[in-house]
């Protein structure tokens, strides 16, 4: 159970989150949608403790986690842009993260899945964007944590890798994990999401299932529903 309580965040004079209250209960795929700059990534980073909110609390299992760090043992995170130290090799990076977390892992299985074996000894600075994203995925899925956060997971992936990724997510969902995903890809949402959260101008505008969203806006598909939501609120 994760809940955000009255989260306010502004960078300088720009308000990014304006009193977000959000509860994510139970396992399943929770997707966060919203236009660019609506605060999706900021919200995720607040959950991770990378961004410090001006106001509000993040509560996991009825414990306030702001300023703490131990709770991140239960979280796997896939950052939006795969940025790594350039002069480390892939295997060194993986080893390092394993060393830091000291948890059992399934890195080898994932390396095979994404066919990363040939790149293991290459420096991260020399990898293509897609390969880096695969390394990024290995790091995110190799520990068996209760909460998985994926920030734009499909960026730069080839279709085969996307299929593998979806499979991975489905498997994790079956284990009853809380999976939090931000994405722009509507088909991904339609296919995977148990719950949709719509974030606009720093506020939650909608929270519910795919069906609920479509019913509310009288739309036949998700894209329409979202467009309607945007039009109504900008009118």
């Amino acid at each position: 159970m994760i809940s955000f309580q009255n989260i306010h965040k502004q960078y300088g004079r720009v308000k990014v989150l304006n009193g977000v209250d959000l509860g994510l209960s139970g396992g399943g795929v929770h997707t966060i949608l919203g236009p660019n700059g609506s605060g999706k990534t900021t919200l995720i980073k607040i959950l991770l403790g990378m961004v410090i909110p001006q106001k509000g609390e993040v509560v996991i299992d009825s414990k306030i986690v702001n300023g703490k760090w131990e709770y991140r043992n239960d979280i796997d995170y896939l950052p939006q842009i795969a940025r790594f130290p350039d002069n480390l090799s892939v295997s060194e990076l993986i080893k390092m993260i394993i060393h830091l977390r000291k948890k059992s892992n399934r890195s080898e299985e994932l390396i095979r899945l994404f066919k990363l074996e040939p790149f293991l000894d290459q420096k991260l600075g020399n990898l293509s964007g897609g390969t880096r994203q695969k390394v990024n995925l290995v790091l995110a899925f190799m520990f068996d944590s209760r909460i998985i956060i994926l920030d734009e997971p499909t960026t730069g992936l080839d279709p085969v890798a996307v299929v593998h990724l979806k499979e991975l997510i489905r498997k994790e969902r079956l284990k009853g994990k809380i999976i939090l995903v931000t994405t722009h890809i509507m088909s991904f949402v339609e296919e995977m999401a148990d719950q949709i959260i719509f974030l606009l101008e720093g506020k939650i505008y909608f929270k519910g299932t795919n069906e609920e969203l479509r019913a509310k806006n009288n739309s036949k598909n998700l894209e329409h529903a979202i467009a309607t939501l945007l039009e109504v609120n900008h009118a």
Binding site: G49, W69, Y71, R72, P79, R83, F84, D86, L100
Partner: peptide, 16 residues
């Protein structure tokens, strides 16, 4: 130059 490394570490269960 080590900003990426720092960000990577920040998401791990380590104190700032």
């Amino acid at each position: 130059n080590s900003r990426e490394f720092t960000e990577l570490l920040l998401a791990q269960p380590i104190k700032r």
